[in-house]
C-alpha cells in the first residue's frame, strides 16, 4: 500500500482520481439507497402538502433563520415523546424541500406544535416573546405584521410540483386566491381551500384581522400546521398501526 502511494504521489492526475474514488464510496453507500425512497418511505394516505399560505409562512420561517434554534424532529427517546409527542416519521417531511429538521434546540422542538397554542398566543409571542414567556430569549419579530407578498407563490408551487410535490394544476393556478381565502374564513374562496387541501385545514383570521393578509397570517398558519399534515404518527403511538 505504501509503495502504491509512493508511486501515486508522483502523478498529479493519479492522486486526483484516487482521492475522488476514496471520497465517493461512503457517500454512495449511504445516499444511493435513499433514492429508493418511494419504496422505503410509506407515504400515508392522509398526508397533504402545505397550503399556499403555510408555504409562504414556511419561507418566512426560513428567511428569519428560525431553524437555527428550533428543531422539527422528535427523536425516538422516552423523554422526547413525553415532552413533545409522537416521534417524527420520515414520511411527514416527504414533501419538504428542504427539510427543516434542524440541529439545535436553543428553543423547543416544533414538530408537534400545531394547534397546541391559540393563534392569538402565537401572534403575541412573535411580536413580543417576553410578554407571554418572561424568561424567553427569543428575538421579537414585530415586522411580521406587514402585508404578505404573494407574488411568487404561484411559481413556487409550480416549481415544487415539478419536484414531485402533489400540487395539481388547479392548486397552482389558485395559489394566490387560496392564500387569501385561508385567512378570510367568511370569503367565497374558502370552499376551494377545503376542496384542495382537505376539511382539516385551519381556515381562520390567524392574526385576528381578516381584512389584510400579513406575513403574520402566513407564519401562524404554518406553525399551526406543524405535525398536523397526517395523523400517521399519532396512530403508531396508540398502537393502531400494529408497528
Amino acid at each position: 500500500m505504501l509503495k502504491l502511494h509512493y508511486n501515486l504521489e508522483k502523478l498529479s492526475m493519479g492522486l486526483v482520481v484516487a482521492i475522488i474514488v476514496a471520497a465517493s464510496i461512503g457517500g454512495i453507500v449511504e445516499i444511493a439507497p435513499l433514492f429508493t425512497i418511494d419504496e422505503t418511505v410509506e407515504i400515508p394516505d392522509d398526508l397533504r402538502p402545505h397550503t399556499p399560505l403555510e408555504l409562504a409562512g414556511r419561507e418566512i420561517y426560513m428567511r428569519e433563520g428560525c431553524y437555527a434554534c428550533h428543531s422539527q424532529m422528535v427523536r425516538s427517546l422516552a423523554d422526547e415523546l413525553d415532552r413533545y409527542g409522537p416521534y417524527s416519521l420520515a414520511s411527514e417531511s416527504a414533501y419538504d424541500h428542504p427539510m427543516l429538521w434542524g440541529s439545535k434546540r436553543t428553543g423547543p422542538d416544533l414538530a408537534r406544535l400545531g394547534e397546541k397554542y391559540s393563534d392569538a398566543w402565537h401572534v403575541q409571542h412573535l411580536i413580543d416573546p417576553r410578554s407571554v414567556v418572561p424568561a424567553s430569549i427569543m428575538p421579537a419579530y414585530p415586522w411580521l405584521m406587514r402585508r404578505l407578498d404573494t407574488g411568487l407563490l404561484r411559481d413556487s408551487m409550480a416549481t415544487l410540483a415539478r419536484l414531485g410535490v402533489p400540487y395539481g394544476d388547479d392548486a397552482v393556478a389558485a395559489a394566490q386566491a387560496d392564500a387569501l381565502a385561508q385567512a378570510r374564513p367568511d370569503s367565497d374562496g374558502v370552499d376551494g381551500v377545503f376542496e384542495r387541501y382537505g376539511e382539516d385545514v385551519a381556515v381562520r383570521a390567524f392574526d385576528g384581522d381578516p381584512a389584510v393578509l400579513t406575513e403574520m397570517d402566513a407564519v401562524v398558519a404554518y406553525l399551526q400546521s406543524l405535525g398536523r399534515l397526517t395523523d400517521a404518527p399519532y396512530g403508531i403511538l396508540a398502537g393502531e398501526d400494529g408497528e
Partner: peptide
Amino acid sequence: WAGVQDAM
C-alpha cells in the same frame, strides 16, 4: 432533495 433524503 426532500425530507429524509435531504437530511442525509
